[in-house]
């Protein structure tokens, strides 16, 4: 289901330089549908905040690196963003983007009880990329991400929300839809298809 027909997926191909994804409960399963579907020619940088228990080392890179056609990393501070590369926010740090296309981490207080927070990533990426950013909110039981996705919309970026019926835990996507307009409301296979077009 596409709300705003004005944006044709093909038009996004030339425009989108960076994709940000936020997910919480049910997020690992959702990403397990999306990341293995990325084509080897996927071009934007892809930054992901997934809420996880903070005191355990993240296994996300181990899980996804083997199943993804593009490189998957846990971000280090000041790491230059490369195209076609997937970056996970490390546990217990916020992940932000700087104007010179570097990762910046912060240990500032949690936002919506979350560190990393989706809002923090989305707002800083919106500041840097403006209309060249595409933001996606997936399943989760938290309101984190709603303000950030609205920030992306206000900066002229493209907003995508997982269709609430298809989300394992719908609170996060419902909050995002209540906060601001979504350019696309899609199921996971449809989101995979959209990302596949950014090649």
């Amino acid at each position: 289901m596409i709300y705003q027909q004005a944006i044709a997926p093909e038009a996004l191909r030339a425009r989108i330089e960076c994709v940000v994804i936020g997910a919480s409960a049910g997020g690992v399963e959702a990403l397990a549908e999306l990341l293995p579907a990325l084509p080897a020619t996927f071009r934007p940088s892809l930054l992901i905040v997934l809420h996880l228990p903070r005191d355990r080392p993240s296994l996300l890179v181990d899980i996804f690196a083997k199943r993804c056609a593009r490189p998957v990393r846990e971000a280090d501070d000041k790491e230059p963003l490369e195209p076609g590369t997937v970056y996970f926010a490390p546990p217990d740090y916020h992940m932000l983007v700087e104007k010179d296309r570097q990762i910046a981490l912060s240990a500032d207080a949690p936002v919506h009880f979350s560190r990393p927070s989706i809002d923090v990533l989305f707002e800083s990426a919106a500041d840097v990329y403006g209309e060249r950013l595409l933001g996606i909110i997936l399943t989760g039981g938290n309101e984190d991400g709603a303000a950030g996705l609205y920030g992306i919309h206000q900066a002229g970026g493209v907003t995508v929300v997982q269709q609430p019926d298809s989300a394992k835990v719908p609170l996060m996507v419902v909050s995002a839809l209540q906060r601001g307009p979504a350019d696309f409301v899609l199921t996971l296979p449809e989101i995979a298809q959209l990302l596949g077009a950014l090649a």
């Binding site: 932000l96 983007v97 700087e98 104007k99 910046a104 912060s106 500032d108 923090v120 500041d127």
Partner: peptide, 9 residues
């Protein structure tokens, strides 16, 4: 200071 987090603070 790193601009992104400084701006946020």
């Amino acid at each position: 200071y790193a601009p992104a987090s400084l701006k946020r603070r």
